[in-house]
Computed example of a mutant assay.
Amino acid sequence: MKVVVLSSHTSSLFWFRMDMMREFVSNGYSVVAIGPDCEQDWVAKFSEYGIEYCSVPVERNGLNPYKDFKTYRAIKKTIKKIRPDKIFLYQAKTIVYGTLAAKQNNIKQIYILIAGLGSIFKGNGVINSIIRKILICQYRSACNASKKVLFQNKDDRNYFFEKKIVKREKTAVINGSGVNLDHFHEVNLPIKTVFLYIGRLIKDKGILEYLEACKSIKQKYPEVRCMLVGPFDTNPSALQKSELNNYTQNGIVEYYGEQTDVRPYIKRCSVFVLPSYHEGTPKAVLEAMAMGRAIITSDAPGCRETVIDNKNGFLVPVKNILILIEKMSFFVENPELAKAMGKESLKYVEQKYDVKKVNKSIMEIMEMI
């Protein structure tokens, strides 16, 4: 049987869904990953794991109807050629146009993953409101055509219930994307306190709050290091390079750009910080937990699932820089508790977020085992 996994971000397919796709392959399925990036750059990387890769044009953040129509036609044509038995879709545009294309190709087993509600659902303004209403209608159509809709947290699922986007019996909640505990494992903490943020440099991820908190921490504790890993983005709320320069040039944060292997950076930190406004379930947080790190994250959908407050870290109110500074200062002044809470993080991730358990639940939902 053939399974298509479709996303509007090829890197996400490779780094966030590879464990899942490899599990499909090991259970005897033929898997085709479809994303927007050039086949020449990715075919060999996917084929190394027994997965075929195809490219279709997708503009993740664009609002051009003509380009979106081209995306739909390309997905429809590619799916017709592959003729999959099942299709797994995530991210807004590929959910909307991928579901429509699959339906047109008479595919019955369509599975949607809502891996977090983006800035369109959380933002303000007239244009944002109009786009949100359109997207809700599109999501409602996609959910109606699907066999099952998966969520990574209950808050997002409840939002879909409230807006009557999906029927309750069609839904399931999974524990994020999981984390590979063979790949990410516990390592000792550094001697001095080091904070780390990993994620796209967009304002909805709480990057400005992190930078401002680091500025205050560095003024009070000059010996503390604050690290930053992640790419710039095309998202409307993306941080500009000039904005980041204000912090890197003054030695407030150490910026390491986008990294394909984040383990060396997690190893060098003692506390992981992600003050995001909303997530599905933040994979970078799970990876830091698997390496025995205490967590500071926001009390927001997706984030709050990863922390038992005061046990493996702290939950802070969204956009509250003062409390973020307070919790970061706590770890500077109580480094032994960073180690103890890191131990609790590892226990929690082993119990709830082991990728093998998560993939098993996905395959049960998709009727693959």
Rank of each mutant, 00 (worst) to 15 (best):
G206E: 00
F121D: 13
Y53N: 02
Y90V: 09
Q138R: 13
L63K: 15
Y159G: 01
I110K: 03
E336P: 07
L100M: 15
V5A: 01
Y90E: 11
V332C: 12
E364I: 07
R60C: 07
E333F: 08
R17E: 10
C214M: 04
V149A: 01
D233G: 15
V126E: 07
S237R: 14
Y29R: 06
S11E: 15
K77M: 08
S361E: 12
I365R: 08
V56N: 03
I130D: 06
N105S: 13
K241G: 13
Q240E: 15
K352L: 10
Y256K: 09
N175C: 12
R157G: 00
I131R: 08
G230L: 11
H278L: 02
A115M: 07
T99P: 05
L6T: 01
Q240R: 15
K2Q: 09
V4S: 08
G257R: 04
V332Y: 10
K347A: 08
K267F: 08
T193N: 12
K103A: 05
K122P: 01
V318P: 01
R225V: 04
E209P: 04
D41G: 03
I266C: 11
I87Y: 12
N312G: 04
D156T: 11
D354Y: 13
P84L: 02
V4T: 12
V31A: 02
A300N: 11
F69H: 15
Q219T: 13
K203V: 14
C303S: 05
N359V: 02
N180A: 01
G125R: 07
Q152R: 04
V31T: 04
Q240G: 14
R132I: 09
N320C: 05
A213D: 01
T71H: 10
A74E: 13
Y353S: 00
K163Q: 15
G28K: 06
Y210S: 04
D354W: 04
E186I: 13
I207C: 11
I165R: 06
E367T: 13
